[in-house]
Amino acid sequence: MENYTVPSYVISTIAETVSENETHASLDSLFMYAEAPGEPPEGSKAVKALEWLRRINKVSGSETLTIIGRIIEKYMETDVETAPTFWRSEEMIEKEKANIEKIRKALERAGLSYSTGGIISKGEGLATKTLSELIKKKNIQAIDQEFERAIKNVQLSPREAVSAACNILESLFKVYIEEHNHLQMPAKQDLQSVWKVVKTDLGLDASKLEERDLQEIVSGIMATVNGIGALRTHASAAHGAGKKPYKLKPRHAKLAIHAAHTIAAFVLETWNEKKA
């Protein structure tokens, strides 16, 4: 994973949250569980948490996001949907919700996202957020799962992230075909085959567009879908690496993810417009 320095406002938000909700003993235990470097700093809980987080940021290098992810995991994955009980009042539940929202907004401002299991990832841009909203509205579980897998693995396993990026498109196109009775699923259900059916039905044919600029963009989309499929075949975790495996880096995975997300969002929006 690449080195990353967490912005000071994220550090401050997390420090404030943990110092308000932990005792000295539990705060020490939490940071040790996360494998934070060094001994607990001296001072109040607020000072201790802030200094320890700054130390993580300064010396942990590529492990910074991993360690901080473990620290906020207990807060981000608290079950706040349950009704108040003898042990958890409505006030406590509202406070837990506020903690999650406060940390989430700080991460979002820094271009970071949290995934289940204490995973903090970089690289969730506008296309990713748009796609996330669209797939949740359509409740397409398979796409939602691949979406999470892509974001989770972009830093940890670029090959796995590329595979997930391709699966996002493949799953979307298959769902589209299944939901339109006049369409027939191709015998070979690889990305290129299902894409051919979908693009024809949606009218995404560059040759039929009058505007030359749009022709070039749509032609680029066609080539990009093929490129993502080929990258999964030759370099992702979906196939053997062969004698000369691609040296995929997070930036390569991000390119594939952002491209797949942009195309998926465009297809979903075109689908919604056609249905309307």
Rank of each mutant, 00 (worst) to 15 (best):
Tyr114Cys: 12
Leu209His: 00
Ala187Leu: 13
Val80Trp: 02
Gln155Asp: 15
Ala127Met: 13
Thr64Met: 04
Trp52Arg: 09
Gly203Gln: 08
Val218Leu: 00
Glu94Gln: 15
Arg55Gly: 00
Asn181Ala: 13
Val6Thr: 15
Thr66Asp: 11
Pro245Lys: 01
His180Leu: 14
Ala264Lys: 06
Trp52Gln: 07
Pro7Met: 15
Val197Glu: 02
Ala36Cys: 08
Tyr9Arg: 10
Ile71Met: 01
Asn139Ser: 14
Ala260Arg: 03
Arg54Lys: 14
Gly111Val: 14
Val175Tyr: 10
Thr23Phe: 05
Pro250Lys: 05
Glu42Cys: 10
Ser8Lys: 11
Asn139Met: 05
Glu108Ile: 11
Glu133Pro: 11
Ala259Asp: 05
Val18Asp: 00
Arg149Tyr: 06
Phe173Gln: 12
Lys274Cys: 11
Leu248Phe: 01
Pro250Thr: 05
Gly227His: 09
Val162Glu: 09
Ser29Asn: 14
Lys196Asn: 03
Arg70Gly: 10
Tyr33Glu: 15
Leu65Pro: 06
Met1Tyr: 04
Ala49Arg: 01
Leu131Asn: 08
Leu183Lys: 14
Ala276Met: 12
Val154Pro: 10
Ser89Gly: 15
Ile93Lys: 08
Gly118Ile: 14
Lys102His: 01
Ile11His: 02
Glu91Tyr: 13
Arg55Ile: 06
Leu202Asp: 10
Lys136Val: 13
Thr64Asn: 10
Ser219Trp: 00
Glu35Ser: 13
Thr66Arg: 09
Ala161Asp: 07
Glu179Ala: 11
Lys174Cys: 15
Gly203Leu: 07
Leu107Met: 12
Val80Pro: 00
Leu156Ser: 09
Lys45Asn: 14
Asn139Ala: 12
Gly61Pro: 07
Glu63Ala: 03
Glu124Gly: 09
Tyr75Trp: 12
Ala206Phe: 02
Arg212His: 04
Ile67Met: 08
Lys45Ser: 15
Asp213Ser: 05
Arg54Asp: 05
Leu65Gly: 04
Ala165Phe: 14
Gly229Gln: 05
Val162Thr: 13
Ser171Asn: 15
Glu96Trp: 08
Val267Thr: 08
Lys174Asn: 08
Ile68Leu: 10
Ala235Asn: 12
Leu112Glu: 03
Ala206Leu: 00
Ala237Gln: 08
Ser163Pro: 08
Glu178Met: 14
Ile71Leu: 01
Arg104Ser: 01
Val175Ile: 15
Pro158Lys: 09
Glu124Asn: 11
Thr64Tyr: 08
Gln141Ile: 15
Ala238Asp: 07
Glu20Pro: 15
Gly61Thr: 03
Asp144Tyr: 13
